[in-house]
């Protein structure tokens, strides 16, 4: 067991487009696993691309953003991590 510091970049291990959602998550939406450069495997919602099954490819570069996940029962926005396809202009 050891501590590692995580950066925002990783590679898309796999993904799917949900046609039937978890509660509070209206379909369709994209979710996947990103393997960060440091080796951690992270479950994530995916944003920043069309919600289509062919909008992503296993192995492509992804980057972390902080974004709205859903609303709570009082209507407040809950914020968390998401990944999006890495944008060419983003400096590493």
């Amino acid at each position: 067991m050891k501590e590692i510091k995580l950066g925002p970049y990783g590679v898309l291990e796999t993904f799917t487009m949900m046609q039937v959602g978890a509660s509070d998550f209206p379909p369709p939406y994209l979710m996947g696993y990103v393997r960060t450069r440091e080796g951690a495997l992270v479950f994530t919602l995916i944003t920043g691309c069309e919600v289509r099954d062919d909008a992503l490819e296993i192995g492509q570069e992804m980057e972390l953003i902080i974004d709205k996940i859903k609303k709570d029962r009082q209507g407040n926005n809950l914020v968390g991590w998401k990944f999006r396809p890495r944008r060419e202009t983003t400096a590493s």
Binding site: T14, T16, A22, D24, Y29, F43, L45, I58, L78
Partner: peptide, 26 residues
Amino acid sequence: STNTDVELMGGLGFQFTGSYAMTLRK
């Protein structure tokens, strides 16, 4: 949905069908 870590996964839209789908896609 409580068959997961409800903070880390249930709260992020995780769903078992999707989990199988992601594994099979690989």
